[in-house]
């Protein structure tokens, strides 16, 4: 399993998870992708969801199960996840681009409209990503949620961003 060997999923491992929506659902609009594969005692995502789209149950080590029909892709669960393992993917963002919402805890934050590197799960830069939104309300408790637009084929690949090297720091 590449997850425990290298620290990242191969896509086959990922698709089997109960928190990952089907390809069909992904094509219908924004939806959460919960990349949580190990039975660890943790359940804040369940309570974070106002639509009751995420369930874990009484045994808090159980994996989060997504009901992707109930999920609207609002992204409230992203900052609630202590493992930073939740993303929202909108494959319908535009003709050519997908939008990805991801948790981000590094300063400085990028600015809206800025072009940053889009990194895959292995930390490789795979494309440019355009920052659409930076959310950091008090409720998120210092885990910012950043929305980026990336080429559609990278919607299920980009899981991190990096500011460009030549970026002027404030």
């Amino acid at each position: 399993m590449t997850l425990t060997k290298n620290g990242f999923f191969d896509i086959k491992e990922l698709e089997k998870l109960p928190g990952v929506p089907s390809k069909e659902r992904l094509q219908k609009g924004p939806v959460v992708v919960i990349e949580c594969a190990q039975k660890i005692p943790c359940n804040p995502c369940e309570e974070a969801c106002h639509k009751k789209a995420i369930s874990i149950g009484d045994f808090i080590i159980d994996l989060p199960v997504l009901d992707s029909e109930l999920c609207t892709g609002c992204g409230l669960c992203i900052a609630a996840c202590p493992g930073q393992a939740i993303f929202v993917v909108d494959m319908t963002y535009s003709e050519t681009n997908a939008a990805v919402q991801l948790p981000f805890e590094f300063l400085p934050y990028p600015e809206q409209g800025e072009i940053v590197d889009g990194l895959n799960r292995a930390g490789q830069t795979v494309c440019d990503a355009k920052v659409l939104k930076v959310l950091n309300p008090e409720k998120f408790d210092r885990t910012a949620v950043i929305t980026v637009a990336v080429p559609e084929k990278f919607g299920m690949e980009v899981r991190n961003i990096k500011l460009k090297k030549d970026r002027k720091n404030d």
Partner: peptide
């Protein structure tokens, strides 16, 4: 935990 590992690996470490 894999979630801790993943958030480091996706930074390129």
């Amino acid at each position: 935990y894999a979630v801790h590992a993943s958030k480091i690996v996706r930074c390129g470490v």
